[in-house]
Design a protein around this nucleic acid. Structure first.
Length: 507
RNA sequence: GCUCCCAUCGUCUAGCCCGGUCAGGACGCCAGGUUUUCAUCCUGGUAACAGGGGUUCAAAUCCCCUUGGGAGUACCA
């Protein structure tokens, strides 16, 4: 392991950060923290045409929500800045020139239209047009021109790009930390554009130059970059620079069928694909986010960490610190992982149950105010939450399990009435009501004791009485222990519900 | 099409590098139990080495082929 571990997460601000991107950032972060290294955020905004306002801010907010922190970046600063490629524009031209000087790159004057035409032609012949050793000799580039011609074009402002000259007949061997050695023949590669006619570098040039300048030790990125690795390796060699180590992460796949996980899948299957809600500035279209859907960032991160990596043990629940402690690149798998929304809910359930009642109550209190305009006493809410929290995956689901603490039943589940409401029930419930009315100290224990004794003394069935009573108090066959429900409801409300229930069901 | 990558239960995966356990765990699903109800919970069950060929006393594990899947193939990242 090199002395100074430095990794970077380098997103393009072209839209909201996809959960696959979050995972890439997470693995970079875990790797850096585990090895005492630095985590850097670099914004790769070299394509002006795809810039989306708000995207950069979104990316930073998302990662902050996940608890992924940067040591250097556009807001953190650092001694290798600026960290936005658009602000590093002046840096790249010199490196492009250097490659031309050393004969590793050349000027190309072909227009986009000309190349498009060649591609179409090739396609018609069932071939693929490649700008390589075979074709470059016949195209409009500096390799086929005299020095004067080239200078003339440059002087008169003919638009040009700079292309990398792929060496002929060599084979390129690369080492990937996850996949081992990968070898390709140079003739399958094309002379990629390094520098665009708009004066901006392409990803390939900017990426290599910045990784070098920022002293990046490990490039941990998605597998979609594996096909460009040979180019990148060749670029490092052309510059005579030391290469960082590479690790290409397997892709996140859609839950059903095949293919890369996309925004569409989330819409189609009903789960978020983005960490935070995103409003598309172009059409105001809203994409849901894990945060807004009630997920805990810890649960989201935990789930993501285990999608493609495993600790080699049976442990599934990890705090960020535990993840850092356990993480290693050699336990990252090679194959793509299908995302499972169900298991993600399970993770949230685990984290929700681990919340202190106090904290959960606080969250739910906000929800109750916002959604139901209710402002109950906190003490009561803490109690209710403790009774029902293990039944739900999300805070917003608490209501379904606890609404009857706030609302007197207005209707009674018919099936339950049929099954539990007998001819003796009205009379029995009335006795119970007066019994409870005379009870001193309306606690769950006292209530239970009183009812139990009465049932035993009168040789009644526990189930028969309790179920009928539950029907009156809740309106349905659900909910936690009855004694607890009545204690929360209080004596007056409990008795009121019993009596009004008797009346309602007698009709 | 071409190049590269990948391949264990429906899903996430352990095991593979250094061949020899009824191929283990989790989610889901199903059943039983606990419970005054529902849920939780507990117990059990379900279900996989893509196929074929080698090498070997022995292959999920090593090699080859086939098949399948994925990614890339832009003056996008």
């Amino acid at each position: 392991m090199p002395e100074n571990i430095r990794v970077r997460f380098a997103p393009s601000p072209t839209g909201p950060l996809h959960m696959g991107g979050v995972r890439t950032a997470l693995y970079n972060y875990l790797f850096a923290k585990k090895n005492g290294g630095k985590m850097i955020l670099r914004i790769e905004d070299t394509d002006q045409t795809r810039f989306v306002p708000g995207a950069e801010q979104y990316i930073m907010e998302s990662l902050a929500w996940c608890g992924i922190q940067f040591d250097e970046g556009v807001v953190e600063g650092g001694s290798f800045g600026p960290y936005r490629q658009s602000e590093r524009k002046s840096i790249y031209a010199a490196y492009s020139d250097q490659l031309i000087q050393s004969g590793n790159a050349y000027y190309a004057f072909d227009t986009a239209g000309e190349l498009e035409e060649l591609r179409k032609q090739a396609e018609a012949d069932k071939k693929t047009f490649i700008y390589n050793a075979e074709t470059r000799k016949t195209l409009r580039n500096s390799l086929n021109m005299t020095e004067d011609e080239v200078q003339n074009h440059l002087a008169t402002g003919t638009p040009y790009v700079v292309r990398f000259l792929i060496p002929e007949n060599t084979s390129i061997s690369m080492n990937d930390l996850i996949r081992g050695t990968v070898t390709v023949k140079s003739e399958t590669l094309d002379d990629k554009v390094l520098f665009k006619s708009d004066g901006m570098p392409t990803y390939h040039l900017a990426n290599i130059v910045d990784d070098h300048l920022m002293k990046i030790s490990h490039v941990i990125r998605g597998e979609e970059w594996l096909p460009s690795l040979p180019l990148h390796v060749l670029l490092y060699e052309a510059f005579g620079w030391d290469k960082p180590q590479f690790a290409h992460l397997p892709l996140l796949l859609k839950p059903d069928g095949n293919g890369k996980l996309s925004k569409r899948d989330g819409d189609r299957l009903g789960f978020p694909v983005f960490p935070l809600q995103w409003k598309d500035p172009k059409n105001d279209e809203i994409s849901s986010g894990y945060r807004e859907n009630g997920y805990y960032p810890e649960a989201f991160v935990n789930m993501l960490a285990l999608l493609g990596w495993n600790p080699g043990s049976d442990q599934e629940l990890f705090s960020m610190n535990e993840l850092i402690e356990a993480f290693s690149l050699d336990r990252v798998g090679k194959s793509g992982s299908k995302f499972d929304p169900e298991k993600t809910k399970w993770f949230n359930h685990q984290y929700l149950m681990r919340q202190a009642d106090e904290a959960l109550a606080q969250e739910w209190l906000k929800w109750l105010k916002a959604e139901k305009d209710l402002e109950p006493e906190k003490k009561i809410v803490v109690k209710i939450v403790s009774l029902v929290k293990e039944r739900v995956n999300f805070v917003q689901e608490l209501w379904d399990e606890a609404y009857f603490f706030f609302e007197t039943p207005e209707s009674y589940d018919e099936k339950v009435v049929k099954k539990r409401w007998k001819t003796d029930s009205p009379q029995q419930m009335e006795i119970l009501a007066s019994l409870l009315d005379n009870l001193e100290g309306f606690s769950a224990d006292k209530i239970d004791e009183k009812i139990k004794n009465w049932i035993i003394e009168n040789e009644l069935s526990m189930g028969g009485i309790m179920n009928a009573l539950r029907l009156l108090l809740v309106g349905a066959a659900k909910g936690p222990h009855l004694g607890d429900i009545m204690e929360v409801l209080g004596k007056a409300e409990s008795i009121k519900r019993i009596r009004s229930g008797i009346k309602a069901l007698s009709n």
